[in-house]
Design a protein around this nucleic acid. Structure first.
Lengths: 194, 194
DNA sequence: GGAGGATGACTAATGCTATTAGGATACTGC
DNA sequence: GCAGTATCCTAATAGCATTAGTCATCCTCC
C-alpha cells in the first residue's frame, strides 16, 4: 500500500477551500480534507502544519482573492463610482463565498505575514480615498468607517441578521450612498472639529 | 456516589457564560462546563439539550443583556444624543464581552424564538429612529445602516482588524458622527431619488 | 413516617476528531 | 543502481459529544 498521491501544500489548501465553499467553515476538518484527497488524516501533516495552520492558509488565500476582486473593481474608476464598485464587489464576494468570507474575521496576533495579507484587501480602498483628497487622519477614519459599514452589512446579511430579506439591496444602496455623501461633505467642509 | 447537585438549566447556562467570558467562545465545551459544575458531562443532558442548544441559550441570554444595556442607554435621550449613547453602549458591550458578543452572530433558521430574541437589541434603535421622524422604508434602511456600521466596527475591533489600535476611539466617533449627519441630512432633504 | 415514582446523577460504550510516533515504500539525485 | 529523502501508511493516545442503561436520592402522597 501507500500508493503515492501527488499532494502539495497548495493542493491541500485547494481541497480545504472546496470544502469550506460547499459545506461551510464548520465542516473544515482534517479528516474531511483527507477523505476528499483519498488519503489518511496523518498524511496531511507532511504538507500542512495541522488544522489551525490550514485554516490560516485558507484565510490567506481568501485575502488574496478578495484583494484581487477589489483591485479589479476599483481599476479605472474614481470617486463615488469607485466606492460604489468597491462596496458592491465586497458584498458580492461575501455572498458568493460566505464560508470563506467568514474565515477571514479572526485575529492572529504574532503572525506578521497574516497581518500583512489581511491588509491587502484594504489597499484598493485606501487608493480610492487617496484620490478623494482626504487628509491623513481623515483617510484612516474614512477607510475604517467604510470597511466597518460594508463588513458589518455583509456579515449581518450572511448570518440572516436582517430577518426577512425584503429590501436588502435597497438598504445596501442607502448605506453606500450615505457613506459617499459623508465623504463629500467632509471634502467640502475641509476640517470640522471632533 | 451521585450526590445530587442542585443543577438547573439556568445554572448550566450561567456556567457556560462564565466560561465564554473568561476563556472565549471556542472554549465552550460540555466537558468544560461539566468540570466547572463538578459533574460528569452526560449529567448535563438532564438540563440542556446538547452543546448546540447550550450555545443557543448563551446567545439568547446575551441578546437580553445587550437589549437591556441599549434600552438603558436610550432612556431619556433622543436625537443625536440617543444615537451616540446607543452606539457607545453597543461598543462597550462588545469590548467588555467579546466572547459573548461573538456568539450572537449566527443564523438559526426555523427558530422563531431565537429570531425574536435577536431582534430585541434592535428595538431601542428603532425607537430612537422613530423619534427622528424618518419615514417607513427609510427607517428600515437607516436602522440597518446604523446596525451594520456599528456591528462591523466593533467586530473588526474585537478581531484586531484595525492593526495597531491607534486612534480607534476617534474613528468610532467619526463613524457615529457621520451616521448622525446622514440622518439629519435625510431629515432635512425629505426625499431624494435613488 | 414510610412506600413509590420521578429526577438527576453515574458508568460504560460508541464514534468522531486531532495529533504523534514509527515504519515501509516510492521517487530523486548522483 | 544506490543512498537519501519525502510521502504515505498503521497504530496509538487523548479529548470531544452523545446515547443507553443503572442506581441512588429526593419529593410526594398516603
Amino acid at each position: 500500500m501507500s500508493e503515492r498521491r501527488g499532494l502539495t501544500p497548495e493542493a491541500v489548501t485547494d481541497a480545504a477551500i472546496d470544502i469550506v465553499e460547499s459545506e461551510g467553515a464548520a465542516a473544515l476538518t482534517l479528516s474531511r480534507v483527507a477523505r476528499a484527497l483519498g488519503v489518511k488524516p496523518p498524511s496531511l501533516y507532511s504538507h500542512v502544519d495541522g488544522l489551525e495552520a490550514l485554516r490560516r492558509d485558507v484565510a490567506m488565500r481568501t485575502f488574496e482573492d478578495l484583494a484581487g476582486r477589489l483591485g479589479h473593481a476599483a481599476m479605472g474608476r474614481s470617486g463615488p463610482e469607485a466606492i460604489r464598485a468597491l462596496a458592491g464587489a465586497m458584498r458580492d464576494f461575501a455572498r458568493e463565498h460566505p464560508g470563506l468570507y467568514g474565515m477571514t474575521t479572526r485575529a492572529r496576533p504574532d503572525d506578521e505575514q497574516y497581518a500583512a495579507a489581511s491588509m491587502r484587501p484594504v489597499e484598493p480602498m485606501l487608493a480610492v480615498l487617496r484620490g478623494y483628497d482626504v487628509a491623513g487622519d481623515d483617510a484612516i477614519h474614512a477607510a475604517r468607517t467604510f470597511r466597518a459599514a460594508v463588513h458589518g452589512f455583509v456579515t449581518l446579511e450572511n448570518d440572516g441578521g436582517f430577518g426577512l430579506d425584503v429590501g436588502v439591496d435597497e438598504s445596501f444602496t442607502w448605506l453606500v450612498d450615505h457613506l459617499i455623501a459623508s465623504l463629500e461633505a467632509r471634502l467640502a467642509g475641509a476640517t470640522r472639529g471632533n
